[in-house]
Nucleic acid binder design. Structure first.
Length: 573
RNA sequence: CGGGGAGUGGCGCAGUCCGGUUAGCGCGCCUGCUUUGGGAGCAGGAGGCCGAGAGUUCGAAUCUCUCCUCCCCGACCA
């Protein structure tokens, strides 16, 4: 590509809307242009990088025996009514009617299609196992798109689905995909963490995420440097120290207007860790109250809550419901003296037997000192606590640290959730009908690109890993009036393409400084610089973008066999 | 959805509080001349219904109301 006639609109100034590093660089390097919130035009440089990424993903998927197919993005809404997910995912669905008035939607994901396809074609254990995948656009009307391509309303996903007859076979596919993912990310030049994750509404029996540490990420991961434990913060385990058990009688105290933990602890002059937080929810099924108890200085992880409730739906209780359940306003709730006797109580492990805490009295403006679990109240004990940096690792004596991270991929053991709801059955060798056991494996294509920019960029701009670079080489003839030098540049450019090297030629009439700055910003791995001096001595200067290293290569050597002349700078086949 | 911020040529901004010639600056763009190893210089030029609508006024980018859009934090996020 010749830069003189290219759509690579680089910017000297940083557009005001961009904060994330990758977002700023993508705008400055002319990769993307925003059309509306969460929807970007992918300009040529961006499109090329994405295509490279897709190729890598495709190769690795094919290598594990996964078959590529392609589902429609437009879907009949009934398909989504079948699994109930039209309702569940309502907020993020783009819905519309076709010209006949039929209700349609743009697919935010494709499990329904997999189910529909599997039940149509898979009938026997002889058909299994199989894995299907696609690289497809997804539409999600995100509540808040953000940070350039990190969270958008339409994006490209590679989603794969394994179909197995047994749980052991699911494990095998899960492992194969896990390995393929490692290959994909390392080939794309990314350093990823594999962390235990929350399966969320996807259901299933286990899941892991592939994360890239970066400030612009939306997730937090917990890392223990001494034993290597890694987890998504929302499900991370940690150890905390507990206060001593004491046998002191409960005592009601007047705590006027002290509602929050901070106010209560301050009023009674005790530490927040000596108080107990009571959070009230309503279980949607049956509208029953749920009381969650946790130490005052700690927070509940919603993800752990979902796990504890095994997917049972819940919502924060309304103030009237709280009043009705406890007899007191929010702020004075506790486990003792509740109005209703059908309150389900779940207790975080931070509330240990025998340790006295200050908790709500279920009476306005009163709390109770020395509430003690096992003596005054009890309930199901589960781990609900969100880990914090500085806490002890649950596996060793190390200290946990927390880093921001971006989720690049997620692998799930789905199990039979969709097979059950959509009737995806097969007959086994004993003529017994069984549900297909599924796995599901996703990768955000754009996020690989964003991750590569985030991980490798320096103060001068993007630094593409060779494997996903839009072009491998950029040629910079510095003196537009020097006809001979210009011709050499043209020849090198032609030769590169003949040799299978994707080259960019900066044939614009610009100053050397301008070309250098632009080349660095664009981040093409190799720069071939043709200046007057080196040209006169028959040489081209080769600059490696990543390291800044420079070396000279004779022009005739380069023209003879560019691949050979630049070998060492290209990844080995 | 809660909180905060912003909409003025392609990009970055000033002007708005306190209404008043022709809306200004830098970058980019066009023409010419000079320049050519880290975003060149000079000269000339093109490009704007100041987010939309309604109102107040002799007069609105500026004041009032309504709406729309975008960004950031949070909530949410198979």
């Amino acid at each position: 590509m010749r830069l003189s006639h290219s759509l690579i609109p680089t910017l000297k100034e940083i557009p005001a809307e961009a904060e994330a590093l990758s977002h700023r660089l993508m705008l400055r390097a002319g990769l993307i242009r925003q059309l509306t919130a969460g929807a970007y035009t992918y300009l040529p440089m961006c499109k090329r990088a994405l295509q490279k990424i897709e190729c890598i993903v495709r190769e690795e998927m094919d290598a594990i025996g996964s078959q590529e197919l392609y589902f429609p993005a437009i879907q009949p809404a009934e398909l989504w009514d079948e699994t109930g997910r039209r309702k569940v995912m309502e907020e993020i669905l783009f819905q519309f009617k076709d010209h006949k008035g039929r209700e349609m939607l743009l697919a935010p994901t494709h499990e329904e299609d997999i189910g529909e396809l599997a039940r149509a074609y898979i009938h026997s254990y002889r058909d299994l196992p199989q894995q299907w995948y696609q690289i497809q656009i997804k539409f999600r009307d995100e509540l808040r798109p953000r940070s350039g391509l990190i969270r958008t309303r339409q994006f490209t996903m590679k989603d794969a689905y394994s179909l197995s007859t047994t749980w052991e076979d699911l494990d095998a596919w899960y492992e194969k995909n896990r390995e393929a993912y490692k290959n994909i990310f390392s080939r794309a030049g990314l350093t990823t963490f594999i962390v235990g994750a929350h399966s969320g509404a996807m259901g299933g029996t286990g899941s892991e995420e592939f994360m890239l540490a970066c400030d612009a990420g939306e997730d937090s991961i917990v890392i223990c440097d001494s034993c290597g434990y890694q987890s998504n913060l929302e499900v991370a385990k940690s150890r905390i120290s507990h206060h001593e058990a004491l046998d002191v009688p409960p005592e009601e105290v007047h705590t006027p207007d002290s509602r929050t933990i901070e106010e209560v602890a301050g009023f009674l002059k005790v530490g927040e860790s000596e108080t107990m937080k009571s959070v009230v929810y309503t279980l949607v099924d049956g509208e029953k109250p749920l009381l969650v108890l946790i130490r005052g200085d700690l927070d509940v992880s919603e993800a752990k809550m979902e796990v504890a409730l095994k997917g049972e739906e819940y919502r924060p209780a309304h103030p009237e419901e709280i009043k009705e359940m406890s007899g007191a306003e929010p702020g004075f709730i506790g486990p003792v003296g509740l109005k209703r006797d059908d309150v389900r109580i779940i207790i975080d492990e931070s509330i240990t037997d025998g340790v006295p805490f200050v908790g709500g009295a279920n009476k306005d403006h009163y709390h109770i000192r020395n509430l003690t679990k096992g003596r005054d109240f009890d309930g199901e004990v589960v781990d609900l606590r969100q880990a914090k940096p500085g806490e002890k690792c649950s596996h060793c004596d190390g200290e946990l640290r927390v880093e921001r991270a971006i989720e690049l991929g997620h692998i799930f053991k789905l199990g039979t959730k969709y097979s059950d709801s959509m009737g995806c059955m097969f007959l086994d060798e004993n003529n017994v009908e069984k549900p297909i056991i599924m796995g599901c494996y996703g990768i955000g294509i754009e996020r690989i690109m964003v991750g590569a920019i985030e991980e490798h960029a320096d103060e001068n701009g993007i630094v593409w890993p060779m494997s996903i670079a839009p072009y491998q080489v950029t040629i910079l003839p510095l003196d537009a009036r020097n006809k001979e030098l210009w011709d050499t540049a043209e020849k090198i450019y032609e030769k590169c393409w003949e040799a299978g090297i994707e080259a960019l030629l900066d044939d614009r009439d610009q100053s050397p400084g301008f070309k250098f700055k632009d080349a660095d910003l664009l981040g093409i791995p190799i720069q071939l610089i043709l200046g007057k001096r080196s040209h006169e001595s028959g040489k081209v200067e080769v600059k490696v973008r990543k390291t800044g290293e420079r070396s000279d290569v004779p022009i005739d050597v380069l023209l003879e066999d560019p691949q050979q002349a630049l070998s060492g700078l290209f990844p080995q086949p």
